[in-house]
Design a protein around this nucleic acid. Sequence first.
DNA 1: TATCTTTTTTGACATAAGTCAAGGATATCA
DNA 2: TGATATCCTTGACTTATGTCAAAAAAGATA
Lengths: 234, 234
Amino acid sequence: MGKKSTDHLSGISSIPLFHGLPEPALNLLDNILEEREFLRGENIFTEGSRSTGFYIIVKGRVKVFKLSAEGKEQILHIVGAKELLGAVSAFAGNPYPAFADAMEKTKALFFPQNDFLELIRKEPSVVMNMMANLAMRLQHFTRMIDDLSLKEVPGRLAAYLLYMCEQNGCSDSVEIDISKGQLASLLGTIPETLSRILRKLSDNRVLEVKGKKIRLMNKKALRDIINGIDRVKS
Amino acid sequence: MGKKSTDHLSGISSIPLFHGLPEPALNLLDNILEEREFLRGENIFTEGSRSTGFYIIVKGRVKVFKLSAEGKEQILHIVGAKELLGAVSAFAGNPYPAFADAMEKTKALFFPQNDFLELIRKEPSVVMNMMANLAMRLQHFTRMIDDLSLKEVPGRLAAYLLYMCEQNGCSDSVEIDISKGQLASLLGTIPETLSRILRKLSDNRVLEVKGKKIRLMNKKALRDIINGIDRVKS
DNA sequence: TATCTTTTTTGACATAAGTCAAGGATATCA
DNA sequence: TGATATCCTTGACTTATGTCAAAAAAGATA
């Protein structure tokens, strides 16, 4: 793959899936992986279509989502750099269960299904990393199902904000890096509802919303909302 | 493990996770696996507790569920014979993300975490089977999230019934093997709502409900309901 | 069979959240 | 910079589904 080989190698070893692999395995990978680029909004795969492999995102972000009959979208997750896309289907040999669109200009490495089987034979440890990845995602979905069915929208929002806050070292301020419409979809609701809830929490001095920047003024209140002790209703 | 050894061996090879393993591996497993029994209603593990291994269900059924702050339960899945219980947490090294209770007298094989790492070194192919298992469950959750957020309760019920019908060779008749209250929880709703919807579908001759036996009189209508074309509202 | 418990059904009611529609605010691009 | 498209907000309204309470039905126990 000429010029880009070294890029690949350094890139490859920084991918969790390939952590700790010996040099020969990395070289093998370098020959297998195929670089692909997607524009903002471009579709990467479609629900129901057969999977021929999976992607490792290098740069950019991809939203994986389902569509209702009326076209309402529910984002399942957002896949960012160094994460896997479409691995479950590729592995299980099932069609893709959801859509995937690039949210911005995205660079990814495509890993063809056939080559994967070969790699596993030569380097079984990869599978361990992959299992960890699947396990993590399962836990994410478990929490999501929990949220969707047991919490009301303000609770899901509060959980999301507190979670985001923790991720970013938690300076009491969260910068949401997706549109509010997309956030609504991620929370399993619609923009109008999200907007109203942000307003109410703002009025009650639980949050301070400035565009995409949200300050968590009262984390205790947020935790209470998650637990159904809703001081915001009134 | 004396007398039960051969039981184990025949049992073990019939577990998808251990399909196709050579004799020595099976013997190794026989020494590792620990038989455990649970009574109806007995708790097997609790949300938040540390996992020390996972179970392979031999007989009986286990419900895995989350609890809301007010005690409302959402069943995530029901684990039956030959399936894995708690594998994700055991593997990811995280605490259990949900509760698990035996729904009836249940026999299971416990697989301690430490021994698992050893097995993988000796028999990496097990991991492949395990990944397939995780992948399948991920797809199940994907569908579940889809249902919970994009479909209304009648749609979820319809999807459930049609799915069950397909599973059982589909003689147009489904015998639900859990209580209606539990089914409500599985569908992310409450018994009252489920009862009302069953009533309505009965009145409209889409279903015929006799206790736990449900006949699908009009599958086309059920499919329409899933797609939001709801002939039952009126 | 009779008694007790649990599950299911029904009714009246409350409410969270969705729909529809329109006006502002922001971003994007020439 | 101005023009155009997208995103966000707000209001009025509807509705699916949850809550509470009580009766009916079905199972379990003695």
